[in-house]
């Protein structure tokens, strides 16, 4: 069991690290999600449009549960911060994931600013983008 746990932990971290941007990849992974104005990220039909930017949460089912991606699409240039808050309940217990950071996008650009995979069960996720002038957009999903 000792080895099992260590292998599990190392395996998980390695798997995560494989997804994580490192060093030079930083400029390519997250910004790679940026797309030019001609190909804006597809927002879900329910995503509200607000002041110069659109927030969306993309859901993808995975073997372990659900992957949630925080997506920001800038209609105008955006220089602000985002908050991505997830609360989940599963058979095993509860999870709270909070992500945040700076968002700098030119007009027409979109980006996946954060991502989280949560276990199967019920959840509530909210993405908020704001700048010095206040809130630019907000979207909330719940199961």
């Amino acid at each position: 069991m000792k080895n099992l746990m260590t292998v599990a932990a190392l395996g998980l971290v390695t798997a995560c690290a494989a997804q994580a941007p490192t060093g030079a990849q930083t400029e390519t992974l997250l910004p790679a999600a940026r797309v030019p104005a001609a190909e804006p990220l597809q927002a879900s039909p329910g995503a509200p449009e607000t002041l110069g930017a659109t927030c969306d949460i993309r859901e993808t089912r995975t073997a372990g549960g659900l992957r949630l991606e925080a997506i920001v699409q800038a209609d105008q240039a955006v220089r602000g911060e985002y908050d991505f808050v997830i609360t989940a309940l599963s058979r095993g217990g509860s999870s709270d994931v909070t992500q945040g950071g700076a968002v700098n996008l030119a007009a027409g650009q979109g980006a996946v600013v954060g991502a989280a995979e949560i276990p199967a069960g019920s959840y509530r996720a909210a993405l908020t983008l704001g700048d010095a002038g206040g809130e630019l957009c907000r979207v909330e999903h719940r199961s």
Binding site: Q19, P21, T26, S95, V97, A116
Partner: peptide
């Protein structure tokens, strides 16, 4: 930057 989180719970 680069925020990625994976949570796996099995009850």
């Amino acid at each position: 930057d680069g925020n990625i989180s994976v949570v796996v719970q099995s009850g």
